[in-house]
Amino acid sequence: MRPLTLGRLLLRCSVLALILFVVVVIALKLGAVQVSLYGLGRDLVRVLLGQSSAISSDYGMIVVDIRLPRILLAIVVGASLSVAGASFQALLRNPLADPYVLGVSSGAAVGAILALMLENQLSLSPEFAGLITPFGAFLGAAITISGVYLLGHREGQIDSNTLLLGGVITMSFLQAIITFLMSTLAGGNLRGASFWLMGSLSTLPPRSLLYLVGIGSLVAAGAIYTTASDLNLLLAGEREATHLGVDVPRVRVVVYVAASILTAFAVSVSGSIGYVGLLVPHAMRLLFGSDHRMLLPTSAFGGAIAVVIADTIARTIVAPSEISVGAVTALVGAPFFIYLLRRRLS
C-alpha cells in the first residue's frame, strides 16, 4: 500500500518540469533561422551583469520576441487544454471527453469569426485591434458555457448525461453556424477564419493578452485542483461519492465552470488544437495512475511539453512555411489514440 504523498508528487512534477525546460531550450534553438543559443546565453549573462545593454540583434529579436512568446503561449495552451480535458473526463465520467465536447470551442469559433467580420467595419487602434478576435472568441465561449449549463442541469444540479447531450447538440448547432458563416466570408476574412479553426500559435498575441490568459488559466486550474480528491471519488458514481462525503453539486459546478474557462482561454488565443486535451490525460494515467492529485499537475506539464514539441515541428518541418499545430497533434494523436484503445481492450 503506497498512497500518494506530497513528496512523490513534487518529485514527478520536478522531473516533468526538467523535461519541459529541456524541450523549451531545444525549441528556442530550432526554427527557420539559425540562432546560436550559446551566443544568446552569453549576451543574457552580460546584460544581467550590467555589462551591456542589449542582446545582439542577430538573434535577439528572433529568439526573444518571436520564439519565446510563442513557446510560452504553447506552454499555457497545452497545460490548459490537458487540465481541462482531464477535468471533463472526470466530470462527464467519460474517457472520450475532451475540452471541446461541450461546444466551448465551437462557440469560441463563432465569436471569433463574427469578430473578424466586425473588425473590418471598424478601424481600431493597434492595441485594441489585436484583442478583438480573442475577445470575441472568449465571449462566444462564455455564452456557450452558460447555454450548455442551462441545458444540462436538472433539478438545480448538473446531470452528467444531460450535460453531455446538451453539449454535443450545441456543438453540432454551432458547427452548422460556422459552416454558414464561412460560406459568406470573403477573401481575407476566410483565410483568417481558416487559420483560426485549424489551430495555430503563429499569431503573436499582444503582451497584455498573454498575461491575462496566463493568470486566468492559473486561477482556473487552481480552482479545479481544490476538487482533485473529490474528483477521484466522483469517478465511482455520484451516489457513492455523496455517501463518501463529496458535495457533488458544488464540485460539478466548480469543475464545469473552471474547465470551460480554461478551454475558452486556450481556444481564444490559439484556435482549436485537437487531441491534446483528450490524449495527454490518458498518457499521464498510464504513467502515473488516475489519482487526480497527481493527474492534474502532470497533465499540465505533459500538455505543455506536447504542444511545445508539436509547435516546434509545425514551424520547422517545412520551413520557411508552417503547417498548423492542429495538423501535427492530429497526425501524432490519432495513432496514439488507437494504441490506447487497443490497450484498454486487451
Binding site: 518540469a17 546584460v47 542589449a54 526573444v64 520576441d65 506552454i75 499555457v76 492559473l218 482533485a228 505543455a304
Partner: peptide, 26 residues
C-alpha cells in the same frame, strides 16, 4: 498543493516579463 503548478507558471510569467524587458532593450 498547487505549488508545483504555480511555480511552473510563475516561472513562465517571469520569463515573459524578462522577455518584455528584453524587447525594449533589443
Amino acid at each position: 498543493l498547487s505549488s508545483p503548478i504555480s511555480a511552473a507558471r510563475a516561472a513562465a510569467l517571469f520569463l515573459v516579463c524578462i522577455s518584455s524587458l528584453r524587447a525594449q532593450a533589443s
